[in-house]
């Protein structure tokens, strides 16, 4: 009886503390999960842009230079009377999907090169890594500008130009991860039980590179959104009427001091997207650290 009482008391004394630690951990994980999930919400929102936008981004909807909050324009109207909010929403859609496309292409190229290099080893490895280092040691945006200048300015060419310089880092990460995984006992066991190279790579090595890749890629979204916006500002993107955030800021630069919103709102659109990328990257990093 006495023993049980002491035992119970001990349990009770312990319990609140344990619970507090649990709930703190839970809170942290929950916070990180929410942060990490933000890109999914943004992707859904930008895909719904046609439903969310109150007006068409191309047609005149009212008087020019209506200040934000007046005449039914939440973010005001631009120099010809188009709805700024609708244009920013469509522009965010273009920026976000472009950034995701470049990340996806970078991952495909980087993972392929990194995996082949790590699995093959020997001269294939040194050749591919020399090639990767070459791209890593060149200034990315400058090379992207040269590519676009050669192909002619358009959104597709800008994406190609940036994609050409955006894979080497992933290749390095994948190669490093695979090489450290290969030395682990479970890979040795897989090898000894006669599993072929292809299956070992696809089933046992590649999944192990996933955490590092996801964190890096999500941290890259913000950088990429900013880089693409800068190139679009320089006139490397789509031609005039299309709603592209960097180009919108550049074209409305002349109105900055009188009608600031025409130039500033597209920039804030970029800021939100880049912020979402950076926050989700931090959240994912926290989640991976907790594992």
């Amino acid at each position: 009886m006495a023993v049980t009482e002491v035992y119970l008391r001990g349990q009770q004394a312990k319990l609140p503390g344990q619970l507090r630690i649990r709930s703190q951990m839970f809170k942290k994980v929950r916070g990180n999960t929410i942060m990490a999930a933000l890109p999914l919400i943004v992707t859904a929102l930008v895909l719904l842009a046609p439903l969310l936008a109150p007006h068409s981004p191309y047609t005149v909807a009212g008087p020019a230079f209506t200040p934000p909050g007046h005449g039914g324009f939440l973010l005001g109207s631009d120099s010809v009377g188009r709805d700024e909010l609708s244009r920013v929403l469509y522009g965010m859609r273009a920026s976000w999907l472009s950034a995701l496309a470049v990340i996806a292409s970078g991952l495909v190229v980087g993972v392929t090169i990194g995996t082949v290099a790590a699995v093959a080893g020997g001269w294939v490895d040194s050749l591919l890594m020399r090639f990767t280092d070459l791209f890593l040691s060149l200034p990315g945006p400058v090379l992207a500008i040269a590519v676009v200048a050669a192909l002619g300015p358009s959104l597709l060419h800008t994406l190609i130009g940036v994609a050409i310089v955006w894979w080497p880092f992933y290749a390095r990460i994948v190669r490093g991860e695979i090489r450290s995984l290969s030395a682990r006992p479970h890979l040795e066991a897989a090898k000894m039980s006669g599993i072929g190279v292809m299956r070992r790579t696809l089933r046992h090595l590649l999944p192990g590179t996933f955490p590092a890749l996801v964190v890096t890629a999500s941290l890259d979204i913000g950088n990429l959104v900013l880089t693409l916006a800068g190139l679009s500002f320089l006139g490397l993107g789509s031609p005039a009427p299309s709603p592209e955030l960097g180009a919108m800021s550049a074209r409305n630069l002349t109105f900055l001091l009188q009608d600031y919103w025409t130039a500033v709102m597209p920039g804030i659109g970029i800021l939100i997207l880049a912020l979402v990328g950076n926050i989700s990257g931090d959240g994912l990093r926290g989640l991976m650290k907790d594992r």
């Binding site: 913000g222 900013l226 916006a229 800068g230 500002f233 960097g246 800021s249 550049a250 900055l256 001091l257 600031y260 130039a263 500033v264 920039g267 804030i268 970029i270 800021l271 880049a274 912020l275 990328g277 950076n278 926050i279 931090d282």
Partner: peptide, 18 residues
């Protein structure tokens, strides 16, 4: 720092100009 790392350079210029 986080917000600053997410700001396009032209937006900083705009803020400075205004």
């Amino acid at each position: 720092l986080l917000v600053g790392a997410s700001t396009p350079s032209y937006l900083i210029s705009f803020a400075g100009l205004v």
